[in-house]
Design a protein around this nucleic acid. Sequence first.
DNA 1: AGAGGTACCTGGCAGC
DNA 2: TGCTGCCAGGTACCTC
Length: 271
Amino acid sequence: MPELPEVETTRRGIEPHVLGKTIRQLDVRQSRLRWPIPRQLAVHLKGKRIRHIARRGKYLLIAVDGGTLIIHLGMSGSLRILDHPKPAGPHDHVDLLLTGGTLLRFTDPRRFGAWLWTSGAIEKHPLLANLGPEPLSGDFTAEYLHRSSRKRKASIKSFIMNSHIVVGVGNIYANEALFRARIHPARAAGRISLGRYEILVTSIKEVLNAAIEQGGTTLRDFVGGEGNPGYFKQQLMAYGRTGEPCKNCGAPIREKRLGQRSTFYCSQCQR
DNA sequence: AGAGGTACCTGGCAGC
DNA sequence: TGCTGCCAGGTACCTC
């Protein structure tokens, strides 16, 4: 489900409801996510005040006294604020109860998400230590991508979806950014010029920013922290449009498998 | 070192 | 209607 814009939408949605609140209780109904939720997590969190809520790539980082709660939404996860208690459904695996009655509920049908704890320096956590730069930061430049891609034979699409190269770009926005940049998704990353990387970096930033403004992309069931769907789907140029006319040239959008992921492109516009 | 495949899990849908 | 197989927004980990 969630790529960077959806995670950022979630972060912005829940932040005003949780910041400064104290955690009363953690209720885990299903601890078997991608990794088991640590048994000690409830002890770490109980009575702690939420100091900060940040995002690194697709990880949400909820800083409390003495450590950080690391949440990943996986493929199908979502976090929602509930002001009034509602009975938990079969995929509502975790509730975080806060002072004042606010409830942060984690729902994740496929259970690829994660709830982890670290008391150490967050940037040294094994899941975060080797991540590439944030795509919306000044560290993400054409020079960086060009330099990192020399001699790489992987497709440009796999390359920009590699979190060691750049974080947050998943299947939807990789397809969309390459369409905007007019680069064929199967082109070898090592055979793209600096000039084309300039365009690609701009395209990635633009498509992510536009998606954040629209509250992310809802394909079937994504909702942000306040329960609203995202509206970026209306602006998709390639993703999911197999056979439909390219919005630039009218040629049918094609679909192929690349690195086990569905890939959508216009064979006229993208080279 | 880099590239590719596998695994984790459930639900929805196309096709028979 | 019901079964089967395939697909899905992610990514760590394994092998070659």
